[in-house]
Amino acid sequence: MQEAQDKIVFTTEDGEQIEFFVLEQTKLAGETYLLVADSDEEEANALILKEIQGENKETVIYDTVEDEQELEALSKVFEELLDDIDIEME
């Protein structure tokens, strides 16, 4: 994993705040994606999030990628961008 990772705090629909480590960001087909992890440990749980424009231009929403084909393609992209990352899909 990277040495100094940025952290980002997400607020759920219920108002709960969840902190993630941002491992990488990429654009694919005009869309922005983040690879985030719940810890900075080697065996962390990771999510791929898709950036969605909110109702106003100041708001950005991130939603988990759930489409299997999109998830598989993005996993390969992130593995190429980060040499020391191996993404295992569950």
Rank of each mutant, 00 (worst) to 15 (best):
V36A: 03
V22H: 03
A44G: 05
V22Q: 07
Q17M: 09
Q25I: 05
A73T: 12
Q25A: 12
V22N: 02
D6C: 07
E88T: 12
E55I: 11
G54Y: 10
E42A: 10
K50G: 04
I61C: 11
F10C: 00
Q2V: 14
T11I: 08
D63C: 06
F21R: 07
F78R: 00
Q5A: 11
Q25N: 13
V36D: 01
T12W: 00
Q2D: 10
F21Y: 08
G15C: 02
N56W: 06
G54N: 06
V65P: 01
E3L: 02
E16S: 03
V60L: 13
D63V: 13
E58C: 03
Q2S: 12
G15W: 00
D14S: 05
D38Q: 12
E58L: 11
E70T: 14
D14T: 07
D14A: 06
K76T: 14
T59C: 05
V9Y: 07
I87P: 00
L74F: 15
E31N: 08
D67S: 09
Q17S: 13
G15K: 01
L82Y: 02
I8D: 01
G30Y: 12
E58H: 03
D38T: 12
E43R: 06
I52P: 03
I18N: 12
E55K: 15
K7L: 13
E80V: 15
E79M: 11
E90I: 11
D38S: 11
M1L: 13
E24Q: 12
D84C: 04
V60Y: 00
K27F: 02
E19A: 10
E58F: 00
L81I: 12
D86P: 01
A73M: 15
T32Q: 05
A44V: 04
I61E: 14
Q5Y: 13
I52D: 07
E41H: 08
A37T: 07
Q2F: 14
Q53E: 08
E66K: 13
T59N: 06
E70I: 05
T11Y: 00
D40L: 08
V65F: 02
F10H: 04
A44C: 11
T26N: 07
Q5F: 13
Q17R: 07
L74I: 09
L81Y: 15
S75Y: 03
V65Q: 02
G30P: 02
Y62I: 13
S75I: 06
I87F: 03
E58A: 04
E58Y: 00
A37S: 15
V36N: 01
